[in-house]
Protein backbone atom coordinates (compact mmCIF):
# COMPACT_ATOMS: atom_id res chain seq x y z
CA UNK A 1 0.00 0.00 0.00
CA UNK A 2 1.74 3.10 -1.28
CA UNK A 3 1.54 6.50 0.32
CA UNK A 4 1.59 8.92 -2.56
CA UNK A 5 2.20 12.63 -2.52
CA UNK A 6 -0.26 14.45 -4.75
CA UNK A 7 1.46 17.56 -6.02
CA UNK A 8 -1.89 19.26 -6.53
CA UNK A 9 -3.40 18.55 -3.13
CA UNK A 10 -0.03 19.06 -1.47
CA UNK A 11 -0.48 16.02 0.74
CA UNK A 12 0.32 12.36 0.96
CA UNK A 13 -2.70 10.19 0.36
CA UNK A 14 -3.41 6.49 0.55
CA UNK A 15 -2.95 4.41 -2.60
CA UNK A 16 -6.68 3.65 -2.64
CA UNK A 17 -7.30 7.19 -3.90
CA UNK A 18 -5.10 6.74 -6.97
CA UNK A 19 -5.02 4.79 -10.20
CA UNK A 20 -1.74 3.97 -11.91
CA UNK A 21 -1.65 4.93 -15.58
CA UNK A 22 1.59 3.46 -16.80
CA UNK A 23 4.90 4.81 -17.96
CA UNK A 24 5.33 8.57 -17.98
CA UNK A 25 6.85 10.88 -20.59
CA UNK A 26 5.50 9.03 -23.61
CA UNK A 27 4.57 11.75 -26.05
CA UNK A 28 1.91 10.97 -28.61
CA UNK A 29 3.59 11.26 -32.01
CA UNK A 30 2.95 14.63 -33.66
CA UNK A 31 1.77 13.00 -36.86
CA UNK A 32 0.44 9.55 -36.14
CA UNK A 33 -0.59 9.09 -39.74
CA UNK A 34 3.01 9.44 -40.85
CA UNK A 35 4.34 6.87 -38.41
CA UNK A 36 5.41 3.53 -39.78
CA UNK A 37 3.74 0.50 -38.27
CA UNK A 38 6.92 -0.09 -36.32
CA UNK A 39 7.06 3.44 -34.93
CA UNK A 40 3.42 3.33 -34.02
CA UNK A 41 3.81 -0.11 -32.48
CA UNK A 42 6.66 1.16 -30.35
CA UNK A 43 4.57 4.06 -29.11
CA UNK A 44 1.55 1.88 -28.51
CA UNK A 45 2.92 -1.28 -27.00
CA UNK A 46 6.54 -1.08 -25.91
CA UNK A 47 7.26 -0.01 -22.36
CA UNK A 48 10.35 0.14 -20.19
CA UNK A 49 10.69 -2.37 -17.41
CA UNK A 50 13.61 -0.99 -15.45
CA UNK A 51 15.13 -2.38 -12.34
CA UNK A 52 15.32 0.75 -10.25
CA UNK A 53 14.16 4.21 -11.17
CA UNK A 54 10.92 4.38 -13.12
CA UNK A 55 8.80 7.38 -14.04
CA UNK A 56 5.12 6.68 -14.11
CA UNK A 57 1.80 8.48 -14.33
CA UNK A 58 -0.77 8.28 -11.59
CA UNK A 59 -4.13 9.96 -11.30
CA UNK A 60 -5.63 11.16 -8.04
CA UNK A 61 -8.87 9.52 -9.06
CA UNK A 62 -10.66 9.77 -5.72
CA UNK A 63 -9.32 13.18 -4.90
CA UNK A 64 -8.62 16.07 -7.24
CA UNK A 65 -8.81 14.00 -10.48
CA UNK A 66 -5.43 15.34 -11.58
CA UNK A 67 -2.78 13.35 -13.40
CA UNK A 68 0.81 13.66 -12.27
CA UNK A 69 4.13 11.86 -12.44
CA UNK A 70 5.85 9.75 -9.85
CA UNK A 71 9.46 8.60 -9.76
CA UNK A 72 9.50 5.18 -8.14
CA UNK A 73 12.16 2.61 -7.44
CA UNK A 74 10.81 -0.66 -8.76
CA UNK A 75 13.03 -2.67 -6.44
CA UNK A 76 12.26 -1.01 -3.13
CA UNK A 77 8.94 0.59 -4.07
CA UNK A 78 10.26 3.85 -2.69
CA UNK A 79 8.65 6.89 -4.25
CA UNK A 80 11.41 9.41 -4.78
CA UNK A 81 9.28 12.31 -5.95
CA UNK A 82 5.94 13.39 -7.37
CA UNK A 83 5.84 16.12 -9.95
CA UNK A 84 3.24 17.81 -12.08
CA UNK A 85 2.51 17.13 -15.69
CA UNK A 86 4.97 18.96 -17.87
CA UNK A 87 7.67 19.08 -15.19
CA UNK A 88 10.90 17.14 -15.43
CA UNK A 89 11.98 14.65 -12.78
CA UNK A 90 14.81 15.49 -10.43
CA UNK A 91 15.66 11.88 -9.72
CA UNK A 92 16.54 9.89 -12.81
CA UNK A 93 18.21 6.61 -13.54
CA UNK A 94 21.32 8.60 -14.45
CA UNK A 95 21.57 10.57 -11.24
CA UNK A 96 20.30 8.06 -8.70
CA UNK A 97 23.44 6.59 -7.21
CA UNK A 98 21.68 3.50 -5.91
CA UNK A 99 20.19 2.28 -9.13
Amino acid sequence: MFYIYCPYCGEHREEEEFHPKGQAHLARPENPDECTDEEWGNYLYFRDNPRGIHHEIWVHAIGCRKFFNVTRDTQTYEIKESYRMGATPEVTHANDPLS
Binding site: E14, E17, I62, G63, C64
Partner: peptide
Protein backbone atom coordinates in the same frame (compact mmCIF):
# COMPACT_ATOMS: atom_id res chain seq x y z
CA UNK B 1 -11.02 16.50 1.57
CA UNK B 2 -12.28 14.26 -1.19
CA UNK B 3 -11.39 10.70 -0.28
CA UNK B 4 -12.38 7.07 -0.15
CA UNK B 5 -15.32 6.23 2.08
CA UNK B 6 -15.92 2.51 2.55
CA UNK B 7 -15.86 1.29 -1.06
CA UNK B 8 -17.25 4.54 -2.37
CA UNK B 9 -16.11 8.11 -1.94
Amino acid sequence: VNTVLAKSQ
